[in-house]
Structure formats: structure tokens, C-alpha cells
């Protein structure tokens, strides 16, 4: 079972504030997810090389041609706070 401190640390990394109920709830849920992955350890992988991808090991490269992307209006359309063509964010994020 994950500790309360571990849950709080993970929340801090995502800059989330959790209520007491949420801490307890996520402690259970996150632990259940980790336990589920633990089951992978039951598979015998003796002699099998680690696999990071099952796709052919060759990435596709793109030519260096610039193209117009989104308009600024489209980009900012869903932002909660906008000023001078920029996103405005709360200074509290500087913690």
C-alpha cells in the first residue's frame, strides 16, 4: 500500500492540491494499479531480452520545411485567461 506521503509527493509533482478524502481514495487506487502491474513479475522472462517497442526500429524523419500551424485565435480560444496574445497564468505557480 502506498503511504500518505508518497501520494502527497506525487500530487506535488503535478501541482495538485488534494482533500483528505482524495488522498485516501488515490492511495487505494494507485496501490491497486501498482499491484496489477506486479502481476507482470509472475511471467518467466528468463533469457528474453528487454523489449521497448514491438514496432520496426526505425523512426520516420520529416523534411525541414516550415508550415503555418494554428492561428493565435484558435490557440487561445479555450484559454481561461488571455492578454496581449498570451496565456495569463496565476503567479502562484512560481511556488
Amino acid at each position: 500500500m502506498l503511504s500518505r506521503e508518497e501520494v502527497l509527493h506525487i500530487a506535488y509533482l503535478a501541482r495538485l492540491e488534494l482533500t483528505e478524502e482524495e488522498i485516501e481514495e488515490y492511495r487505494k487506487q494507485l496501490s491497486a494499479i501498482l499491484d496489477y502491474f506486479e502481476r507482470l513479475k509472475e511471467v518467466d522472462t528468463e533469457g528474453i531480452p528487454p523489449t521497448a517497442s514491438v514496432l520496426p526500429p526505425r523512426t520516420v524523419l520529416r523534411e525541414d520545411e516550415p508550415q503555418q500551424g494554428l492561428s493565435r485565435e484558435e490557440l487561445l480560444a479555450n484559454a481561461p485567461d488571455v492578454e496581449d496574445g498570451q496565456f495569463r497564468v496565476p503567479p502562484v505557480l512560481d511556488w
Partner: peptide
Amino acid sequence: AEPNTHICPVCT
């Protein structure tokens, strides 16, 4: 460049 003018769904 003017802010937020060299952007697309990938880089945002």
C-alpha cells in the same frame, strides 16, 4: 515574432 504565432497542435 509576435507571441503564440509559431504554434500548432503538436507543440502546444
